[in-house]
Amino acid sequence: MQFDDAQLVSRCLEGDTSAYGTLVKRYQGAVYGTAYFYAGRYGAAEDIAQDAFMAAYQNLRWLQDPSRFGPWLKSIACRTAANWLRRHGKRLNSETPLPFRRTISIEDARESPRGTLERGERYERVQMAIDSLPERYRLPVVLRYLQELSYDEIADFTGESRDEVRGVLHRAGRQLRELLADMDESEGSAKWHPARK
């Protein structure tokens, strides 16, 4: 049986931690995507996501409308990421961000230096394209392409309606199409992993 957010929250408040586990599974992609959106280049997205879930649990009694757990969690995730950046901002300013955000695998290491360079360039191009989008388009785009979240999942997390999410992604997609038009689709240079739902 599938419980909705409000039911899971109320079970959490009664002390059922497994209910919180279900909520974590449901929202981990979105929270991770948000953390990645803010601090992904520093490889801190996972840590921030875990911290955000723990902060949310700690403050669960202050959630006024349990049916809006998603948007509430989003605000906590944003705050946690912002705090992380503020805490580590000084140190990060003196460091060069990683070209890739996750550890390089053995397979990746075998690739030619040229391929690595190309991938770095592609990443920067995509990052610039996203940065040129209107602000409210950026997080839905990251959630969609990073975690392949469905429109409903994005809507549950951002608090917008499904149609609003669809409109945002359509307009963002049209701009990205123009921005990335001159980029070659590099075949087989990256490992393609289907999103795990």
Binding site: K25, Y32, V126, H193
Partner: peptide, 23 residues
């Protein structure tokens, strides 16, 4: 364009389940 987006982000996608660590 979508393929480029998916491809670039695929590297950083979260595959691990965070719930055991959180719980």
């Amino acid at each position: 364009a979508s393929a480029i987006m998916f491809e670039v982000f695929a590297e950083d996608r979260l595959f691990r389940d965070l719930s055991p660590a959180v719980l």
